[in-house]
Computed example of a mutant assay.
Amino acid sequence: MTTQTSTQAQVIPKFGEQKKAFSIDKLKRLVNAAKSMSDFDQAKRYLCSYFIPCSNPHGVFMWRSEIKNLEHILDKNISKLICSITKVFYT
C-alpha cells in the first residue's frame, strides 16, 4: 500500500468529533501529499473537522478536543494559528 493510498483511506471525522488536538504539521503533510487538486479533499476535510465559520463576531470557531469545547478566533488572528501552506501544480 502506498503512502498516497493510505492517506486517501483515512476517515476524517466531522466537525466537533475529533479526538486529537489540531496539528498544523498533519495539515501540511496532507497538503504536501496531494498529487492533484482532487487530492486536497483530505486536507479540506481535516481543516473542516476543526474549524467552522462564524459571522458575529467575524471569525471561526475552533473545536478544541482537549477541552471538548469551542474557541472563537477572530479573523485577524487566524493567520497566527494557521500559517500559509502553498502547493503548486504544473501542467
Score class of each variant (00 low, 15 high):
1 M>R: 12
1 M>Y: 12
2 T>S: 14
3 T>N: 15
3 T>M: 12
3 T>G: 10
4 Q>R: 11
5 T>G: 07
5 T>C: 07
6 S>Y: 08
7 T>D: 10
7 T>W: 09
7 T>L: 13
8 Q>R: 05
8 Q>C: 00
10 Q>Y: 01
11 V>T: 14
12 I>A: 06
12 I>M: 02
12 I>G: 01
13 P>Y: 13
13 P>C: 08
15 F>P: 06
16 G>N: 01
16 G>C: 03
17 E>N: 08
17 E>A: 12
17 E>C: 12
18 Q>K: 12
18 Q>D: 03
19 K>F: 00
19 K>Y: 02
20 K>Y: 04
20 K>D: 14
21 A>E: 11
21 A>M: 04
24 I>P: 05
25 D>H: 13
27 L>A: 09
27 L>K: 03
27 L>R: 03
28 K>I: 09
29 R>F: 05
30 L>D: 06
31 V>E: 02
31 V>W: 00
32 N>C: 02
33 A>W: 03
33 A>R: 09
34 A>D: 03
34 A>V: 03
34 A>L: 01
34 A>H: 02
35 K>R: 07
37 M>I: 04
37 M>Q: 08
38 S>V: 09
38 S>Q: 15
39 D>A: 08
39 D>Y: 12
40 F>H: 07
40 F>G: 00
41 D>V: 09
41 D>K: 14
42 Q>C: 12
42 Q>G: 08
43 A>H: 07
44 K>N: 14
44 K>I: 15
44 K>V: 15
44 K>W: 10
44 K>Y: 15
45 R>V: 01
45 R>S: 11
46 Y>P: 03
46 Y>Q: 01
47 L>R: 04
47 L>S: 04
48 C>E: 09
48 C>R: 10
49 S>F: 10
50 Y>E: 03
50 Y>F: 14
50 Y>G: 00
50 Y>Q: 05
50 Y>H: 11
53 P>I: 14
54 C>G: 13
55 S>V: 10
56 N>S: 14
56 N>G: 15
58 H>I: 15
59 G>F: 12
60 V>Y: 10
61 F>A: 11
63 W>F: 10
63 W>Q: 06
65 S>Y: 02
65 S>C: 05
66 E>Q: 13
67 I>T: 15
68 K>C: 08
69 N>L: 09
70 L>N: 06
71 E>N: 09
71 E>I: 11
71 E>V: 15
72 H>I: 02
73 I>N: 00
73 I>R: 01
74 L>E: 09
75 D>E: 09
76 K>L: 13
76 K>W: 06
77 N>W: 05
77 N>F: 05
78 I>M: 14
79 S>T: 08
79 S>M: 07
79 S>H: 06
80 K>R: 14
80 K>Q: 11
82 I>K: 00
83 C>M: 11
83 C>T: 12
84 S>E: 13
84 S>F: 09
86 T>V: 14
86 T>Y: 00
86 T>L: 04
86 T>G: 01
87 K>C: 00
87 K>E: 01
88 V>E: 09
88 V>G: 00
88 V>H: 05
89 F>G: 02
90 Y>W: 01
